[in-house]
Design a protein around this nucleic acid. Sequence first.
DNA 1: GGCGGTACTGGTAACGATATCAGTGCACTT
DNA 2: AAGTGCACTGATATCGTTACCAGTACCGCC
Lengths: 343, 343
Amino acid sequence: MTVSGSGPSATPTVRDVAEHAGVSPMTVSRTLSGGKNVRAEVQEKVWAAVEELGYHRNENARSIRPGHSSGLIGVAITNLGNPYYGQFALGVEEVASLHGRRIMLGNTGEQLARESQLVSDFIGRQVEGLIVVPTGEGAEHLTPGRLGSVPLVLASRTVEGLDADTVLLDDINGAYEATKALIDGGHTRIGFLGNVLSVSTARRRYEGFVRALHEAGLEPDPALIRRGQQDVAAARRAMEELLGLDDPPTAIFSANNRNTIGALQAIGTRQKDGPAIPAPTLVGFDDVELADMLQVPLIIVSHDPRQLGAQAARMLFDRLDDPEMDESPRLVELPVTVGTLRG
Amino acid sequence: MTVSGSGPSATPTVRDVAEHAGVSPMTVSRTLSGGKNVRAEVQEKVWAAVEELGYHRNENARSIRPGHSSGLIGVAITNLGNPYYGQFALGVEEVASLHGRRIMLGNTGEQLARESQLVSDFIGRQVEGLIVVPTGEGAEHLTPGRLGSVPLVLASRTVEGLDADTVLLDDINGAYEATKALIDGGHTRIGFLGNVLSVSTARRRYEGFVRALHEAGLEPDPALIRRGQQDVAAARRAMEELLGLDDPPTAIFSANNRNTIGALQAIGTRQKDGPAIPAPTLVGFDDVELADMLQVPLIIVSHDPRQLGAQAARMLFDRLDDPEMDESPRLVELPVTVGTLRG
DNA sequence: GGCGGTACTGGTAACGATATCAGTGCACTT
DNA sequence: AAGTGCACTGATATCGTTACCAGTACCGCC
């Protein structure tokens, strides 16, 4: 009595199928790979055995053979709970699916250590490529020495000291145009809400913000600048602080959708509870569902995160399909649209 | 001259590391698995070689060895673009991460064929378990015969004819309570917006809706029932139809967040363009970001999709950790909260 | 000196799938 | 009749890894 009995609960292998169909494992393999050079009659027996045993080819075993690849793309994002990244992942998934690849998705929670661990694990699982929305604080785990020959595309954010294919939004111009719209509307006391400076989008959007101010002969007022809010709750508190100032800003630039939503909540509470102070005009980067329904002066710097994901995936597959292509990293900046004032 | 030259671009293997460190592959393997029974001095050499070559253990190769599992959980959801499912995936990911597993995420786009293909592929990649938000139209690809010994948890929706571990929301009571709130508010002409009937949540929420009507001696009015809207645009059109009726409903029950947003958009447009007709009271299943900021009468049937994902993952790991557990499928219904009327 | 134990190291054989090579049998040409 | 080509099939070796077994060296103890 052998230990490797063909117990019904064990996952069936080619050998089991072969035995069941009365052929060799090779014939099973050939049948599953298209059936070239296998008699139709034999193929039928094989398929019947496959059906009966509930056999599935072991892709992991296949992938260790030379020349064969895993068909997996590793995707590391910072916060799946943000609808923005759900759309992003959808864009990646759609393009990957077109190329016959699956995605492995990991969430870093904005933590460098988890990002590093995730990337290492992805490579161990033989992903063919990586798409990473980096926390931005460290580059070492993403260097070519660590990744070997696995191509990498950075999305949405850059990493200091790392030269890799990157797809960004036109953060600077978007922030510039949006801030300019506020200035053109007569605002001079403009506040700023943004996330931590280690994130490149925060820096770039701040840069556009300041550029517009300077161009109008204005200086950013440190008292009106709040940076470092990574979630809605923190953003709300920061906005409440600004609203509570003796001389509050008449307009706010919010650098991402978490901050925009927090700011809107703060405004909402204040309008409900306090005296009828006119709400500050808000301009926010990133789309927000239902933003157009609000009774608040609001400009949205709009873009399509799904396209961002799709573009990142396309850049990755460019390299996968043509490994000989020019090695110098490419940078793509996707356009953004500055909405018109409402409310 | 051998073909398998240790070219620098090729992914390094244990053998390469072993050669580099002047030891056998076994010693490398032992070092990487904790270093038991390997001299500290030798371990250092091994780690140095690992570092220098940028070696990563091939998890796929490991996973084909007996007794070793892949550490992967397959997650199939219907629409990653819906923030609801981003939160859901986050909940799954967090719990999986606690158990040392990664998730493979696939998007079905509400298409049965893609769901079936996805599940088959997941099994081929040796996932240890499956979490599926089913389209609900077919059960065959999810039967034990097809899945072998891979445990399955259905989330959010059921599949007719399939008995599996399932975690749902308390759809029926949620819809019942919400509809009752409308009736208690004096409404008798209540419209219904929902997605296709093949989705079990649509059926269950409709059931709760009808139950509340019947209890109050009312009948659902076919002219006010719109079902089958799977996205925001379709929901908006359906709501516009209802608003355009000669005798429009004074209240609307919306069975999910896509329909709620579409309905809100229709209301918004009408308030902007048309005469100042009072907006119908809206009650919507699923949370919507910023819903509390709107100037529209709105009740939300609220719940936490992240918890739903976490619960699904926990139910899966219950089985993985204890394969001997009672085989009969478990059903969990998570509570929902009916918000108070605002606006 | 011999014995048993322990710490360390490496050779070998699998895991599941398949590329390669070596057939076998049959039809068809010359 | 002999040769040629083709369609089909299977035995073998291999991918990267590690469990298992078989050492080897060295220690302490009688």
